[in-house]
Design a protein around this nucleic acid. Structure first.
Lengths: 66, 66
DNA sequence: ATTATATACCAATATTTTTGGTATTTCAAG
DNA sequence: CTTGAAATACCAAAAATATTGGTATATAAT
């Protein structure tokens, strides 16, 4: 059973770009607390939003999910 | 704006394995109509389920989503 | 044509995600 | 230290999305 690493990956990618949760939230059009929830593994975005995040960070689906 | 091809990919992967919606549904533990909805782009599975589907079809996240 | 199997539709339910309001934490400046 | 501002997190309700019960329609084989 594969573990989805999205939460941790998102957090470290965001930090590596020097962005705050609020800044990333604005970029993708959600609230800062949504980013917080994603990073804490409370919930996850849909595919379209995931693609948007991949685009921003220059990552593939595979790298951001595993 | 990237188009997510999940719906079409899922359908063709399922057919390439010679599975019916019901058979795939049983494999992953959902109803046949859920598979139908995924294939018609009405809704989409979560990451864990997506990973399960990738595993079954021997595909990567990238190949199943793009 | 009849039966069996496969897929799709609608509407209600269940579940998940998102946010309003706010609390806590972090951290730099004095 | 203490203060103030920026960053992140918590709770509960709202909003949005996914799933399924009941059933209809379609596809295929005999």
């Amino acid at each position: 059973m594969i573990k989805i690493m999205f939460a941790e990956n998102l957090k470290s990618l965001r930090k590596s770009k020097g962005l705050t949760q609020k800044e990333l939230a604005d970029k993708v059009g959600v609230d800062q607390r949504t980013i917080s929830a994603w990073e804490k593994g409370i919930c996850e975005p849909g595919f379209q939003m995931l693609a948007h995040l991949c685009e921003i960070f220059g990552e593939t689906f595979d790298s951001i999910l595993s």
